[in-house]
Design a protein around this nucleic acid. Structure first.
Length: 287
DNA sequence: CGGTTACCCTGGATGC
DNA sequence: TGCATCCAGGGTAACC
């Protein structure tokens, strides 16, 4: 579930609750989600630490500790999320921060256990791991950098946008919203986008993600919630995701739900009128 | 190497 | 009601 706006919302919720706080211990309840060290090592390290700050790297949550104790990285993936209030499904708690002075808890829950938890010794190790897995952050990428990265691949533009090594933070929901805002068909070949199309795509990214952050992300069903258990409001004001059959906000034609190559089974929402695969005036080649 | 596909997990919704 | 099937915001490893 969590894409950049949801993770940013989590981080903004965690930051005031965790920054500067002493942590009696960090309890890992599901060792299978831990990468890079053993559960015993994790337990030993998680005693008597203090939080220096909380940050976001792409879709990763980074909890930085004081006194050279390194940083804990939590990847929520599909169903992970943090709770400052009692989580509604305690059996899904995978990690607990036990705070001291005054006592409190911060929980990380993940129903499907697809999330991952790592502990890095220091900023250099964490930065190296981040760089291996990510391109520039979607909120910060420059237009020409995006253009150069799109030029490198003949994949479709949607899976390219969702490739964290191209740019970090965009997932299935926001890819559809951004492509609609830019009036681009998700199957257009990334390298074939014209300079004007790249302009439109780049110009759509920050406004869509910012609007979603302002709405505290996207919630549906029993999925993502804020750290206070509230639903994010973006899907009440969005254009595409979850709106199959509803009138397109650009032209009124029904929004189409489909599956596209390069994205396994994930749904894609688009307006075939506003996001044509070929330019409306273009004639098919003869021959 | 670039691109595509299986698979990791589980809960909730849907259909019979 | 009960059971089978399908679906889901992500990411990696293996494959062609």
């Amino acid at each position: 579930m969590p894409e950049l706006p949801e993770v940013e919302t989590m981080v903004r919720g965690l930051r005031p609750a965790l920054t500067g706080r002493a942590v009696d211990r960090i309890e890992l309840h599901d060792p299978t989600m831990l990468l890079g060290c053993t559960a015993a090592e994790f337990a030993a390290r998680g005693v008597g630490v203090r939080v220096a700050g909380v940050g976001r790297r792409g879709k990763w949550v980074v909890v930085e500790l004081t006194d050279d104790r390194g940083m804990i990285v939590i990847q929520p993936r599909m169903t992970g999320g943090f709770w400052l209030v009692e989580p509604p499904r305690p059996e899904h708690v995978r990690l607990t921060f036990r705070l001291a002075n005054p006592e409190a808890s911060v929980w990380f829950c993940d129903a499907r256990r697809l999330g991952r938890i790592l502990w890095f010794d220091g900023p250099d190790a964490a930065a190296a791991a981040f760089a291996r897995a990510h391109g520039p952050d979607a909120l910060a990428i420059a237009r020409d950098d995006l253009a150069a990265r799109l030029k490198r691949t003949r994949r479709a533009v949607k899976p390219t946008l969702m490739d964290q090594k191209v740019l970090a933070g965009i997932g299935n929901i926001y890819a559809d919203e951004i492509l609609f805002e830019a009036r681009l068909h998700p199957l257009k070949v990334a390298a074939d986008l014209t300079p004007r199309e790249v302009d439109r795509l780049h110009a759509a990214i920050v406004p869509i993600l910012s609007k979603a952050i302002a709405a505290e992300g996207s919630s549906f069903d029993a999925g993502y919630r804020t750290v206070l258990g509230l639903e994010g409001g973006f899907l009440a004001v969005n254009s595409m995701y979850g709106r199959a059959g509803q009138p397109c906000k650009g032209c009124g034609a029904p929004v189409e739900k489909t599956k596209i190559a390069g994205l396994i089974g994930r749904p894609t929402y688009l307006c075939p009128k506003c996001q044509p695969l070929r330019r409306p005036g273009a004639r098919p080649k003869k021959g």
